[in-house]
């Protein structure tokens, strides 16, 4: 590089100016980028979380950049020293991947006003869980007259050719298989019993959907009448008038933590922390428990009302009793080989 007088002068001026006005370098800095999920997540976060964050941060600029967990990880991985995202949102599987690849900044627990109020399962110093996703039994009340009570009901011969499941690509599919294995004596470390049960389920299977979204839409077509399903996905269908009900099985509804993380090397760590604080706050979580969002809260101080109280739990104690939490660290270790086995064996 040629160093001439003019260049030297500009550099010196710039450096001097940056020293004199430290705010100047922030003018170049980008707004806080929050990678939420697409669809109803984005809607809920835009309508409730972002306004709360703006209020708490004195109108700091924030951008929602909805994308899949895998894309979040890829984008951060591609530019580790200057990540384009400040806050990530993850399902349990990808969260462990992100932590394993050292993409996550520890959450400053000691500075947080709400962390201690979270139920213990939602506390994680690598990134707390502001929301739960809940998986239970879904059925069409027009065709399934006796509401199911157990995962075992899916094997009921009455439902021949009417049961839907998803493959193991999704958190839902994998978590459900683990639960089925558990019912038959297996565990997160050993799902052989689950695969054996899947084999026996084949006559009942009407559909193995590619993802939970596709599974939920099959109720509209009458393709399936009963399936494992995501509480929130079902609420959206129900609101549109599709005949579908959600029930927590007696074995316990599967609860997945959706965790929120500060990205390592983020230039907006302060703001990222504030956004997460807002997500953990009882105000935001309370609003999100109301329709149309019906998101299950993790802050023990949030009262559960309405549909959540009716079909899931009235308070944290009941929630802990009725929910099943899974060990995704163990699940992740063998998930690849399960997916491979599912690919090979499950053909209907």
């Amino acid at each position: 590089m040629m160093i001439d007088r003019r260049r030297l002068l500009t550099s010196a001026l710039t450096l001097g100016a940056m020293h004199a006005f430290p705010g100047l370098s922030y003018a170049d800095a980008r707004p806080l980028v929050f990678a939420t999920f697409t669809g109803s997540w984005e809607e809920a976060h835009k309508a409730v979380l972002v306004p709360a964050f703006r209020k708490a941060s004195g109108d700091a600029p924030v951008v929602l950049d909805p994308m899949l967990s895998v894309d979040q990880i890829a984008k951060v991985n591609a530019a580790k020293s200057n990540p384009p995202i400040d806050v990530m949102l993850h399902d349990p599987g990808p969260a462990l991947v992100a932590i394993g690849q050292d993409l996550v900044e520890p959450f400053p627990v000691e500075n947080s006003a709400y962390y201690k109020d979270l139920i213990p399962e939602a506390q994680d110093p690598n990134g707390p869980a502001p929301f739960f996703q809940v998986v239970g039994l879904t059925y069409n009340p027009d065709t399934v007259k006796t509401p199911p009570t157990s995962w075992a009901d899916l094997w009921n011969p009455d439902y021949k050719g009417r049961v839907g499941i998803t493959n193991l690509n999704s958190t839902l599919g994998t978590g459900w298989l683990v639960e089925v294995a558990r019912m038959h004596g297996g565990s997160e470390a050993n799902v052989d019993a689950g695969f054996k049960a899947l084999e026996a389920l084949k006559p009942n299977l009407a559909a193995v959907a590619a993802n939970p979204g596709a599974l939920a839409t099959l109720y509209q077509q009458g393709q399936i009448d009963i399936s494992p399903g995501n509480f929130n996905a079902i609420q959206i269908l129900k609101a549109r008038g599709v005949p579908v009900e959600f029930v927590a099985p007696k074995e316990g509804a599967i609860a997945f933590k959706t965790t929120i993380h500060i990205v390592k090397n983020s230039p907006n760590k302060e703001l990222a922390f504030k956004l997460i604080e807002a997500a953990l706050s009882p105000e935001v979580q309370t609003t999100l428990t109301e329709p149309p969002y019906l998101i299950v809260p993790t802050n023990a101080k949030v009262a559960m009302t309405g549909e959540i109280a009716k079909v899931l739990a009235k308070d944290t104690d009941e929630l802990k009793k009725k929910f099943v939490f899974q060990d995704w660290k163990t699940i992740n270790q063998q998930r690849a080989s399960w997916i491979e086995k599912f690919n090979r064996d499950i053909k209907i």
Binding site: G93, N167, N169, G173
Partner: peptide, 20 residues
């Protein structure tokens, strides 16, 4: 096709997205 019929695009997606 659904989730049990595996073709190359889905196989690819599975390896890249779910299994990283």
């Amino acid at each position: 096709g659904g989730g049990q019929m595996l073709f190359m695009p889905m196989y690819l997606y599975q390896q890249a997205s779910t299994l990283q």
